[in-house]
Design a protein around this nucleic acid. Structure first.
Lengths: 234, 234
DNA sequence: TCAATATTAAATACTAATTATAATTTTTTG
DNA sequence: CAAAAAATTATAATTAGTATTTAATATTGA
């Protein structure tokens, strides 16, 4: 070893590499010089290879013997991976990404509400009720409001009891969080409880159509807020 | 080294570990004995750790210093990862998984058709037309039919120009392929071209509502085929 | 000269032994 | 008895070296 300074732990290296791929430093098809990289980051080749293995697992790079390890085209990336999405949104100058996320929300969430209305257990209902109460209690506190909002949507997805939909919660959550970041402090800031309660009531009543409609309204409003905020910034 | 026999390359180890997790050999919360595993699989600790890193990236295990590396609960798995899903369906005694996949298809595909109808480029239309032609040409050949079917659905998702929806194609594809495996050779085997052409025509006409409805009918039929096949086996 | 084959070179994949780090448990001590 | 310190333990990282794969090149035979 050359120095004793404390070095990155855990997924530090992965984050670094990911951010480089996300930035235009390494575009599609770029080949990575492992030895140079190893030296620059001051980590061992093994550690580097482990980090690359993680990125390969997410479809962002491909390492083949003799040919080298190179950055995969964006189409090959696992966009549905929570990490990949987080990195993207973090590095995003791309406002289109958020629009795409909202579009997915508009597709998935109303349908999830419909399914949940026909399938939610008592526990699900109870956990949704709590989230709603938290949301009411969090009025005025932006941070707590966002958390309660996220919790409500997450629990609704869980109430579908469909593993794939449950997992999509992560996508929804990032979309929501990004919106909140943009909208944050905007003059809208109206009480979110009534609109969410409509969804909740429909789920409790076991009324799929009403649940779907209420959630669709929620997402639409969310989208409008976002557009307004984006216009306000330009 | 102990022996010179050719050993697994590439993702061999990952597959092995994944299949063990999928089987009940290692249930949720099970701790993995790395050194014992290393010996059993006859690979180095580093290679093993790299394989584990891949699984960790997919949320299937968690390795923490001192505490050990243990299998994560299913909720933490990245179900939307193509590999995870493939492993699941491969090991699946679980018919529920296929139902969940079909449910997701029913949510996503009609919506995707609707979006595609309002957004498809000329190239998209052309590639869909080709897929339809391939489907017609493949009549009688089960393997080619499945391929053409998959291609049609994949290209439709691509026509949404939404990165997340495009990526969901992998989920759809596995659901479709599994259905085809079950239905294969069933007495239904009616011509799939007309139903797909309805979707295609609606996309070409730029009629979102019609596209959504036509695709919904397609998925419903697909689901019915599946149920019939499942009943026939019991 | 052309094509099939053998050699070389370059890059990743793997191995093994050791050291570092962090979390837990036990022991010491006020 | 409680808080701090030390020992333990398991994973993480490092290092140096070997093996394997494959692209490119040189060789050889027709």
């Amino acid at each position: 070893m050359t120095e004793h300074r404390p070095r990155g732990l855990h997924g530090q290296t992965v984050e670094t590499l990911a951010s480089r791929i996300l930035s235009d430093e390494w575009g599609e098809g770029a080949v990575l010089d492992l030895t140079a990289l190893r030296e620059e980051l001051d980590i061992s080749l093994t550690a580097l290879r482990e980090a690359l293995k993680v990125l390969a697992a997410k479809g962002m790079i491909d390492a083949r013997q003799k040919r080298g390890t190179f950055v995969q085209p964006r189409e090959a990336w696992n966009m549905l991976d929570a990490d990949v999405m987080r990195w993207q949104t973090a590095a995003a100058d791309d406002p289109g990404l958020l629009d795409e996320l909202t579009e997915v929300r508009a597709v998935v969430e109303p349908a999830a509400a419909r399914i949940a209305a026909g399938r939610a257990s008592e526990q699900d209902v109870e956990s949704l009720r709590e989230a709603l109460a938290d949301m009411a209690a969090a009025a005025g506190d932006p941070e707590a409001s966002v958390q309660a909002d996220l919790a409500f949507h997450r629990r609704l997805m869980a109430a579908t009891h469909n593993n794939f939909l449950v997992r999509m919660e992560r996508i929804i959550a990032i979309g929501l969080a990004e919106r909140d970041k943009l909208v944050h402090g905007a003059p809208t800031a109206e009480d979110p409880v009534p609109s969410h309660r409509k969804v909740f009531d429909a789920v409790v009543a076991g009324d799929p159509a009403a649940a779907e409609q209420a959630m669709a309204a929620l997402v639409t409003k969310s989208h409008d807020d976002l557009e307004r905020a984006q216009r306000a910034r330009s």
